[in-house]
Design a binder for these strands. Structure first.
Lengths: 157, 157
DNA sequence: CGTGAAATTTTAACTTT
DNA sequence: AAAGTTAAAATTTCACG
């Protein structure tokens, strides 16, 4: 991974549909060289995918909440995480340090649906108390974070 | 927005680099029809962008944390949000209900850097106490959530 | 890493339903 | 209006130097 790879990655984070020709013009390489580099970055697991971003409110997902999940000792974290993954409303799932085992981000159409989703969460074996924080507005989200692309990767990455 | 639009959106959430020809084959339309629909979805603000997803650990961002931010009355929420947006390490920013004004997700190379970032956060006018939850592992993140695409949008979306 | 070339896709104009 | 057809321009993708 050299500086050119980092530039290509940064460009693809901003515009995941940029053509190889575009990228080549941005970084000063031929389209075929960019193509080859991107293929290697994908194969190496650096670039894990490309995804369209959708305004949630336009597709009927107007309510976002962050839910802390306290564990019970009736199931392993792995089983709980797998069960959380079964719920379509759970968009992200983090295992965390502290009193809670997980923090998840859920996205649902209405607060009514949020209530139902919380009920489903609490019915998962290994899930104890939940602590829900309702999101009032998303100021920004999943922003391209190039902090790691400006310098060399930290040792042991 | 009809069922075909929803299928196109779902496909682009999974693979944001799918060609219009691919999408056409998936949904049973010609490439040019898909092209026209996608253009309208972009213009309508339904599709807001396309982004490559990168494995953070491969670019030297091995530490993730969720930070709750308690407000003081020395700045408006808008000013605090703007200041948070200036920090490259802050990837997402949610204004939330409850004791905290914001919850942000930060991504940094090391715990040392996390300490520095928390210092920068606390130095922002309007930011009081912070409450940091370190992420031990990301089970899944920003998953395509098609819950809203299966049915019609909630009224008032 | 670049060049060149064939296959594919993009994109707009036009036609059809 | 919405979808299909056509065709020219651009891009993708691969072999080779």
């Amino acid at each position: 991974m050299d500086q050119l790879d980092r530039k290509i990655i940064a460009a693809l984070r901003v515009n995941g549909r940029a053509t190889y020709a575009d990228l080549g013009r941005s970084v000063g390489l031929s389209a075929s060289s960019v193509h080859e580099r991107v293929g290697k970055l994908e194969a190496a697991g650096v670039i894990t995918g490309y995804h369209a971003t959708v305004d949630p409110s336009t597709v009927g997902l107007g309510v976002t909440a962050l839910v802390g999940i306290h564990p019970t000792d009736t199931a392993t974290d792995e089983d709980v995480a797998a069960a959380l993954g079964e719920l379509a409303e759970v968009e992200s799932c983090y295992a965390v340090a502290g009193d809670e085992a997980f923090v998840v981000k859920v996205r649902v159409p209405t607060v009514d649906e949020l209530e139902h989703t919380l009920g489903r969460l609490r019915r998962i074996p290994g899930v104890g108390r939940t602590n829900t924080t309702v999101v009032l507005s998303t100021r920004f989200e999943s922003r391209p974070n190039n902090a790691g692309l400006d310098e060399e990767p930290a040792p042991g990455a």
